[in-house]
Design a binder for these strands. Structure first.
Lengths: 235, 235
DNA sequence: TCAATATAGATTGTTGAACAATATCTTTCT
DNA sequence: AGAAAGATATTGTTCAACAATCTATATTGA
C-alpha cells in the first residue's frame, strides 16, 4: 500500500492528480460543488491555477462545469453507467478480436490475474478492484492504439468515480477474479468466440451489480439542489 | 456558407472554439509554437484565460504542452494516423454491429449522403469533406453512447487537423461519396456482414490516402527544432 | 575554427489583488 | 405564502509582478 505520488510536472498537473485521487476515493460527495477559494486553499494553490485544474478534470469527465455556477463533482447516474458499459462493450470486443498470442498484453494480463488472486486471498478488496481495472485496461492494449486506450481510461476513471461514491466498495469486484482468469485462458488459447461470449457475460454482470449498487446509493442523500449538492462543510 | 459562430458560454469556451477552428483550417503550421502573449493578443484575451484554453485544447489532443516550453500545435505523424485509424476501426465496426433499421442515425446518414452528392456536383470539396466526417459521426451514433461519440469526435478532430495541415485538402474526400452511399444502403438493408466488409475497405483506402498525403507534406518544411516548428512570424 | 561556458534576454509558471457579471441568500412588502 | 428588492458571496476575467526555466548570444579556451 505505497501511497507513492511522484513529484513531477507543473503544479497544475500535480494538483489535478491530487484532486483526481480525492474524487476517486470519494473524498467529495457526488454532485458536490467545489468552491474555487475553498479547494484552492485546501491544495495551497492560487485560484487561477486551480481553474486550469478544473478545466483539465472537466474535460476528463470527472467534473462538470456550469457557467457562472462553478464546478461540480460528476454524479454519474443510471444513464451514465449504461453509457459507460456500452462504450466498454465496443472497445473491449474490439480488443478481443485484436488479441494475438505473441502480444505483450497477454503477459500483463496473466500477471494481473495472479496478483488479483493473491489479493483476494488476502482480503484486500481495494487492491482487487484496482487489479480488475488494470486487467481490462491491459486487455485494451491488444488494439495497439494509444488513443483507444486513452478513451478507455477516461471511461474507467468515471467508473472508478462511481465506485468511490458507493458505500460498499468492498467485494464488488470479488466475483470477477475468476472470470478474468477464465477470460485470460480463453485468449491464451486463441478461442476468440468463447472469449467474446465470456466478455459479454462479464460486462452484463458487472453492469448489473454497479447499477444495483447505484440504486442503493440513491436512497441515502437527503437534500440537494440540482446538478450538485450544496453541503459546504467538509474536512 | 454562413460563418455562424454562436456567441455562448464563457470567454474561454469561445476562445477555445476559435483556436480550434484556426487549427483545423490550418491557420497555424504543424508543430508551430503558440506563444502565450502572442495568441492572447491575437484573440484579445488575457494570458490567464488563454492558459485555460490551452489546457482544454491539449486534453483534446489538438495541442501538445511541454512543461516550461509552452504549447505546440499537434503535428500528427504517420504513427498517429495509423493509431487514429485503429481507433476508428474498433469504434465503427461496433457501430455497424449496433446498427438497427429504426434508428434515427440512419435518416441522418441518408440526408448527409444526399447532401454530399450535391456538394460534389457543385465542386465544393470543403463541404464534401465535412459531410463525409458527419456521415461517419452519425454512424457512430448507432451505438447510442455519448461517451463513445465523444471519443470518436476527438479522434476525428485530430484527423481534421491533419487535413488542415495538408496542402491539397481538395478532392481527398471525393472518392468516398459513393462509398458512403453504398455503406448506407447496406445498413439500410440490414446486410451487416457486407457493410463490415465495405467499412474495412473504406478505412483502408482512406488511411492510405491520408498517409500518402502526409508523406507529400513531410517533404516541404525545411527547418524545425524538436516537437514543433520554430517559425515565429505569422499573420 | 570549433566547442564549452557564461551571460543576457525571453517565455512560461504561478501568485495576489482587483473588479464586473452573475448567482444565491435574506429581508421586506403585499 | 409568494413576489419583489436588496445584500452578500461566487464566478469570470484581467492585470501586474516575480521566480523558474528555457533560448539565444556573446565569450572564452583549446
Amino acid at each position: 500500500m505505497p501511497a507513492d505520488m511522484e513529484e513531477e510536472g507543473s503544479l497544475a498537473s500535480k494538483a489535478a492528480g491530487r484532486i483526481r485521487n480525492m474524487l476517486i476515493e470519494g473524498y467529495f460527495g457526488p454532485g458536490e460543488k467545489l468552491s474555487e477559494v475553498q479547494v484552492a486553499g485546501l491544495l495551497g494553490i492560487s485560484r487561477n491555477t486551480l481553474r486550469e485544474v478544473f478545466r483539465i478534470l472537466a474535460s476528463q469527465g470527472l467534473l462538470t462545469q456550469v457557467p457562472n455556477r462553478g464546478a461540480f463533482v460528476a454524479a454519474p447516474d443510471e444513464a451514465a453507467v449504461i453509457d459507460i458499459y456500452r462504450t466498454r462493450r465496443v472497445i473491449q470486443r474490439g480488443a478481443v478480436h485484436a488479441a494475438t498470442l505473441g502480444h505483450p498484453a497477454l503477459a500483463r494480463m496473466r500477471a494481473l490475474v495472479v496478483e488479483a488472486e493473491d489479493m483476494r486471498r488476502a482480503g484486500n478488496w481495494q487492491a482487487v478492484g484496482t487489479l480488475n481495472m488494470d486487467f481490462h485496461r491491459a486487455m485494451v492494449e491488444f488494439c495497439d492504439s494509444a488513443r483507444l486506450s486513452a478513451c478507455f481510461d477516461l471511461v474507467m476513471a468515471e467508473l472508478r468515480l462511481v465506485f468511490g461514491q458507493l458505500a460498499d466498495t468492498g467485494h464488488l469486484h470479488e466475483p470477477y477474479v475468476e472470470l478474468n482468469a477464465a477470460l485470460y485462458k480463453l485468449l491464451l488459447e486463441g478461442r476468440t468466440a468463447e472469449a467474446l461470449s465470456l466478455l459479454d457475460h462479464y460486462l452484463i454482470q458487472s453492469e448489473r451489480s454497479v447499477l444495483a449498487a447505484l440504486h442503493r446509493r440513491r436512497a441515502e442523500p437527503p437534500v440537494r439542489t440540482e446538478p450538485g449538492a450544496s453541503r459546504t462543510n467538509r474536512r
